[in-house]
Simulated scan of single mutants.
Amino acid sequence: MKDPVSIRLIKESDFPELLEIENTIWNTRNSPVLHYYESVDEYKEKIQGRLIFVAADEDNVHGFVDVHHPTPLLSHKKQWMLGIGVHPDSQSLGIGRKLLDYVKDEAAKEGIRKIALRVMGPNTRAIQFYRKNGFVQEALFKDEFFINGAFCDDYQFAYFIE
């Protein structure tokens, strides 16, 4: 039986559902900046120029992964930074793993050596998820953020393409 959820490049028709995901998933446990977009046009402007893959079936967009080089330096062209989000109703269904597997494959095809991401300390589910999917901790940024009256650590994780 064919899996109804597939990974593909973003389409303009995905924007309203991606806007809903962005406006739903971010909070002070997983982002130092609360993402909220008033309109599809505002969201469209934010993602302009980004390489975004979506996990979707015939009816819904379930999640996304956004990849970009960490800086415009030529010496960073073999590395991607990623951001990933899965709609709360679609979490724990393997969507995130499927998105990461797809990005790993695309990175290998593009000659990318390293995929990196940042994750906040209170987001223990995400930390466990990244470790389970082959990411290793590269850095700890102690007391990186001051949110709601408390300091918060931030971690950098990476996956290396062999």
Rank of each mutant, 00 (worst) to 15 (best):
L19H: 02
L19S: 04
E20H: 13
E20V: 13
E20R: 12
I21H: 07
N23F: 03
I25N: 01
I25H: 05
N27G: 10
N27P: 04
R29K: 12
R29Q: 13
N30R: 01
S31N: 07
S31G: 04
L34P: 08
H35S: 08
H35A: 00
H35R: 05
S39V: 02
S39W: 03
S39K: 03
S39G: 14
D41I: 06
D41A: 12
D41C: 13
E42M: 06
E45W: 04
K46G: 00
Q48E: 09
Q48C: 10
R50V: 10
R50Q: 14
R50A: 08
L51G: 07
L51R: 11
L51F: 08
I52V: 04
F53V: 00
F53D: 04
A56S: 15
D57I: 06
D57M: 09
E58L: 13
N60S: 14
V61H: 04
H62L: 15
H62F: 10
F64G: 00
V65Q: 02
D66C: 08
V67T: 00
H68P: 04
H69P: 09
H69S: 07
T71P: 08
P72G: 03
L74G: 13
S75M: 14
S75G: 07
S75F: 11
H76G: 08
H76C: 13
H76E: 11
H76V: 02
K77V: 09
Q79N: 09
W80S: 03
W80G: 01
W80H: 15
W80K: 03
M81K: 12
I84R: 00
G85W: 02
G85Q: 08
G85C: 05
V86E: 06
V86N: 00
H87Q: 10
H87C: 09
H87W: 10
D89C: 15
D89F: 09
S90V: 11
S90G: 01
S90P: 08
Q91L: 02
Q91P: 11
L93P: 00
I95S: 06
G96P: 09
R97H: 10
R97I: 03
L99Y: 06
L99P: 09
L100D: 03
K104C: 12
D105L: 13
D105K: 13
A107N: 03
A107T: 05
E110H: 14
G111C: 04
G111T: 05
R113M: 12
R113E: 11
L117M: 12
R118L: 08
R118W: 02
V119G: 08
